[in-house]
Computed example of a mutant assay.
Amino acid sequence: MVKPCTPTLHDIKKSPVVLSIAGSDSCAGAGIQADIKTCAAMGAYACSVVTAVTAQGAGRVDGVFAMPASLVRDQIRAVTQTYTVGVVKLGMMGNLAIAQIVADFLHDSGLPVVIDPVFKASAGADLCTDGQGLNEVIAFYREVFTPIASVITPNIQEAAQLLGVPPADTHETYDLQARTLLDLGASAALLKGGHSLDNRLCSDYLAFPDGPEGQINVQAFTAARLKTPHGHGTGCTLASGIAAGLLQGLTLLQAVSAAKNHLQGALAAAGRLNVVSEHGPLHHFAHYW
């Protein structure tokens, strides 16, 4: 009788992971920390490449230090040589030297990537550290990152800066700008409505190719606008939630819907954390405790 062969650790197929390439937030509401918590809450494992360290408190940024570009390259190499990366989520870059290293990695790997263009912190601080003007940073995202994005997730102000137009303020301009982001080369674009003036609803507009003739479809994902003093890290959470969904085999529409639902629940429960009076983080694990 032949005994069944017991697989060794090297024979077992490794589960893919999300790789978050972003900045560190010392109050753990946004950036790498929000990405890891979001992926964990949504059933995905996340590795990280830290591009910059920020000194942040509630509603304030006291300092930003970009990692040496060589260390960013070493982090990418260390993770990708030992883990199977399935999806990349991109956030804050720190400076253009880091951005170029990350862009080279994305070009070489061909991995699907969710790009959350981060130009400034929610508290208003500039997140590029080496003297390059904001226009140079925006140009890099427009010309280098956007064409390789599986989906790009700018908010109203970021989309306007990428496109060089005034911020969207009507359904028609949301629709138009979401479509126009695809002209920059992105495979899909999610224009986030968290900063809109609508006091009742928060609508995100997803533009994606649909049909053999290359038609563009725009679908709105709408939820009730929650009135809370806590909303730090909403953009990071939504983008990394999409990455977690894509990693698990969801379609883009399903991944956006799942991420939006997770964000809504984490935002609604943010006050339960009771860690700060305002500008606090989301409760990513509201379903667990």
Results as ranks from 00 to 15, higher is better:
Val72Met: 08
Thr38Asp: 12
Ile32Glu: 13
Phe65Lys: 11
Gly57Val: 07
Val61Ala: 09
Val64Trp: 08
Ala55Ser: 14
Ala69Trp: 08
Lys37Gly: 01
Thr82Arg: 13
Thr82Glu: 15
Arg60Ala: 13
Arg60Thr: 14
Pro68Tyr: 13
Arg77His: 12
Asp35His: 03
Val50Leu: 12
Ile32Cys: 09
Gly31Lys: 08
Met42Lys: 00
Gln56Phe: 04
Ala40Gly: 00
Gly63Pro: 07
Arg73Met: 01
Val53Phe: 13
Gln75Cys: 01
Ala58Arg: 10
Ala46Ile: 01
Asp62Glu: 14
Tyr45Gly: 00
Ala34Asn: 01
Ala40Phe: 08
Asp74Ser: 14
Ile36Ala: 08
Ser48Cys: 11
Arg77Val: 01
Ser48Ala: 15
Ala66Trp: 12
Val50Tyr: 06
Thr51Met: 03
Arg73Val: 03
Gly29Asn: 09
Ser70Glu: 15
Val49Pro: 13
Val79Ile: 14
Val50Trp: 10
Ile36Cys: 08
Asp35Pro: 07
Ile36Met: 14
Pro68Met: 11
Ala41Thr: 00
Asp35Trp: 05
Cys47Glu: 13
Gly29Thr: 07
Thr80Asp: 09
Ala30Gln: 05
Ile32Val: 15
Ala28Asp: 06
Ala55Gly: 03
Gln81Leu: 11
Ala30Phe: 02
Ile32Gln: 11
Ile76Asp: 02
Gly31Tyr: 05
Ala55Asn: 06
Met42Ile: 00
Gly59Trp: 12
Asp35Gln: 03
Val49Phe: 05
Ala30Leu: 01
Ala46Cys: 15
Val79Met: 04
Ala66Pro: 12
Gly43Ala: 02
Thr38Cys: 04
Thr54Pro: 02
Cys47Phe: 06
Thr82His: 14
Pro68Val: 09
Ala78Tyr: 02
Gln81Ser: 14
Arg60Trp: 12
Val72Ser: 08
Ile36Val: 15
Ala44Tyr: 05
Val53Asn: 11
Met67Ser: 10
Ala41Asp: 00
Ala34Glu: 04
Ala55Pro: 05
Met42Arg: 00
Arg77Ala: 13
Val49Met: 04
Ala58Tyr: 05
Val79Gln: 04
Ala41Met: 03
Arg73Phe: 00
Gly57Arg: 03
Tyr45Phe: 15
Ile32Gly: 11
Met67Phe: 15
Phe65Ile: 15
Arg60Asn: 12
Gln75Thr: 05
Ala66Phe: 13
Val72Phe: 12
Thr54Cys: 08
Ala44Ile: 02
Val64Pro: 10
Ile76Asn: 06
Arg60Met: 11
Ala52Gln: 10
Gly43Leu: 03
Ala40Arg: 07
Asp62Trp: 07
Gln81Cys: 09
Met67Thr: 04
Ala28Asn: 10
